[in-house]
Design a protein around this nucleic acid. Sequence first.
DNA 1: AACAAAAAAAAA
Length: 902
Amino acid sequence: MAGKVNDGLRFFWGKARPAGQAEDVTAPTHPLVAHMLDVAAVAVLWPGSSRLGLDRRQLGLLVALHDMGKVTPAFQAKVPAHWPRQALGPLPDTVVDSRHDVDGLILLDRVCADVLAPLFGADADGLEWEADDKAQLWRAVAGHHGQPVAIDETRARTLGHAACAAHARELAGLLLDVFRPPPIPVPSLDQLRQLEWQLAGVTVVTDWIGSRQDWFPYVQPDDVADAAGYFWNHALPRAQHALARAGLGPVTVAPFRGIGHLFAHVQVPSPVQALLEEIALPAGPALVVIEDMTGSGKTEAALVVAHRLMASGRATGLFVALPTMATANAMFDRIAAAYRGLFQPSAHPSLALAHGRALLDPRFAAVVAPDDALDAAAVPQARMEAAEVSCAAWLAGESRRALLAQVGVGTIDQALMAVLPVRFATIRQAGLAGKVLLVDECHAYDPYMQAEMAALLRFHASMGGSAILLSATLTKAVRQKLVAAFRAGLQQEAPVSLSSTAYPLVTLVGCDGMTEQPCAPRPGLARRIAVRQSGSEAAVMVDVVAAAGQGAAVAWVRNTVDDVIATARALAQQGVEAQVFHARFAMIDRLAIERDVLARFGRNSMPADRAGVLVASQVIEQSLDLDFDVLCTDLAPMDLIIQRAGRLRRHQRAARPIDRDEICVLAPAPVDDPDPEWIRRLLPGTAAVYRDPALLWRTARALLRMGTIESPGNVRDLIEAAGDTSITPEGLATASSVATGHGLAAHDAARRNILHHEWGYTPGSGLWEPDIRTPTRLEERPYVTVRLGVLRAGQVWPWAALKDETLAAAHAHRRAWALSEVSVAQGRLASCHVAEDAREAVATARAGWSRWEREADDRFLLLLLTEVEGGAEGRGHNAKGHAVVVRYDNRYGLEVVPAPAG
DNA sequence: AACAAAAAAAAA
C-alpha cells in the first residue's frame, strides 16, 4: 500500500519542544516523517513555488527530503529521552556528533541515490542527469541551515555502512511513494542554476513556516502510520492555514488602468509619468532607469511601471529599496497609501517595512496584525475590509521574513544581503524573486555598494526578475555599469552603449537590447541658481550674520560636525543664536531637532518663524523637505552641491526677506595649478571627508565657469565635468590617485564578497565561512554606539526615558535605549568609565539589552551622564587610552574633549 | 593631521 510507514520509521523524531515550554500539548515530539510532510505541504502551496517550474509532486518530494539527515543516530541522540529505541535499540553510550544538514546531503546524494533515481528523467536523446547536477539539487534542499554544505568524504564512507543507511533508504522510498513524482527532465545549465538557488530559498522559507509548532501541532508516531493520509488530511490543510496566517496566501494582481487608479491625487500626469503609462516595455525581464528632477513624481511613475510589469505577469510583488532607514520609513507611508491598488480589491496583500529598526517605527508597528488576523476564516468580514494596510506578525517580526511580503519597503541593505554570503541569503533571494525591485536614489552609493548593486541586478535578472532604478541624475559611467550588469544576468554579453545625454531620460533594457527615451521636464519645475564662490570662512560668516539681520531663513551646510559646532559658537558670540543640526545627538534629540527644523523651514513654515540661522552637517542634504532664503555650503562633490542647492527657495512663497536665486560656496579659488594643500588650507576637515581633492577642484571650477546650476539645463554637464578624471591638476594628482585607489579597492572587495549565481548554490559560490561577517557597507573607520544613561535612585535610565515619560515604561525599554544612542568614532571614544558604586546598576541595565548588544561590549557602550549646566557630562577613554570627558550639550550635541589633568 | 552619513547584528 502506498505511503505506509515501516514499523520503526515513525518513531524517529523531527522536532522536539524546547525544554521549559508548556506541557499542555499532546505530544512531546513531532515525528520526522510528519515534519518532512508538513514542510513539503507548505512548499506545494506557497504561491512563490510556482516560479520553480517543477511539478508539485517533484517539489513536494524534494522539499520533504530536506531533513533526511535527521535519521542519523547523531541527531536522534540529541535529546536522549526521545531516542527511538523501537527502531534503533537501546541508546549507545557514545554517539558521534555530526551536523544533520551535512549528513542529509550525504544520505541523499550517495546512500539513497538509487532509491531516488526515478525522480530524474532523460531527455529526448536519452541524455541523462549528470551526477554533479543531481548533487546540486540535494545541496539546495540539504543546505537549509542558511548556507550551502559540502560532502565530507570520510563521513560519507562511515555513513554508507552505518545502520541508518537502511533507514534513510526506507524513508526516501516512503516519500517517493507518497508523492510519486514524474521524472524531472534534464535541465540546461541555466535552468539548473535558477532551479537550485530557488529551491534552496523555497526550502528555507517553507521550513521556517513548517517548523512553527502552533501552526503544525505535534502528533503521535501512530498518526503518521499512513504517511500519505497524513499528508493529505493533516499537512495540507494545516499548511494552507499557516500560509494565510503568515500573510503569504495567494493574491491576484489587478489589471493596470492608468495612474489615476493608483494615485487619486495625480490629476495631470507629469511627462515622465505619461510616458511610462504608454511606452512599450521590452519582453521578458526588464530594467527601467528613470532619471528626472526631484519633485517630478518619479516614485509614482515607477509604480506605474511596476504595476504594468506585474499586470503582464512578469512579477507578483514589489520591493522598494532606499538608502536609509529614515527614507524607507517615509516611503512606507507613501506606498501604504497606494499598494492596494496593485491588487484585486478582494486580495489581502501584506505590506512590510524591512530594516533593522522597522518595528521601532510606530506607523509600521500599528499595521502589524496579530498572527491570526489574516486568516480569512477567523476574521470578521468588516475587519477585513477595514484593514486597508496590514502585515502579518510573522512577516513583520524580522527583516528577512519581511522581504517575503508581497509588497516591501526597506533599506537597500536588506536586498543586498541576497547577494552576499551571509546566513540565509537564500531566503532574501526568495523574497526578491518574482518581485519588481525598485531602487530609489540609486546614485547615492559609494564604489563598494555600487559593485554590490551591480551584483544584485545581475542576480535578480538571472532569476528572471525586473528592476526599476530611480535617480535625479546618474553619471553615464554608472548607468552603463548597471545596465551592463542587468544584461549580463540575462546572458546578453554583447555590450550596448548609451549615447543620450538628454535629461530627463528613461532607459529601457531587455533581452533584445536597450532604448533611451528623452522626456520633457515637468512644467514649472525648471530652476536656475547662480553660484557665488567665497574664499574665506570669515566672509561667509559676515554674509550669514547680515542675512540673519534681515530676517531671512539662512542655512550653512558644513562638512564636519566640529565645524558645525564651532561655527554656531562663533555666531553666538556675534549675537546670532543659530540652531545646530548634525548626527552626533542622541536619536531622541536628533528627531526633536528634525521636527523643529521642519516646522521652522519646512513646507508649512510660517514667515514669522523662518527668520534664523541653521548650521547643519550633511544630515539636511537629502530627503528633508526644507526651504531657505539664503544657502551657504562648504565645497563638496558636485552631486552633493546640487542636492544642497535644492534646499534654496524650494517652495513657492509670497515674499522673502532676501530674494535672490543664489547660493554661496565656501571654497578655495579653483586656480589652474593648485598645490597639494589647495583644499586643506581652507577646509582641512573637508579634505578628510571627501578624499579626492581633484574632484573637489573640478567641482569648484565647473561651478565657477558655468556660474549657475540649471535644472534640467546643465546638471548633466556639471556632473560629467566634475567627474572627468582626464582633467586632474598635477598638484592634486597624488592625493587623487590615492582616493581612486581606495575606491577601486572597495570595488574589488565587493566583487570578492558577492555571490556568483553562475556557480550555483555551493560553498564555492562565495566566502561562506561562518566566522566571516560580510558587511553591506564598508566602514572606513570603526564607530562605537554610545547609549546614554543617567543614574537615578540606583537605577540606570535611558536618556530618552528622561525626555519622554512614556519611554520609561518597561515595555518601551528597547525603544528607549535605541532612542538614546549616538554613534561616535572609536578613535574619540573607545570605552566608558563606570564608577565602582554604579557597576551593578550598569550591569543590570546591559542585561536587558539583546544578546548582540550585550556581548559586543566594545561596540555598544553605556555612558553614564551626570547633569551639569546646559547639559550633561560623562567620562571615558579614547582609542589611545587617554582619559576623555564626554560633554553632551542640548544645543550643540556630543563632544569629546581631553580630560583635565589630574 | 584630520574625519559625514549611512546599515547590520537568533534560528528553524
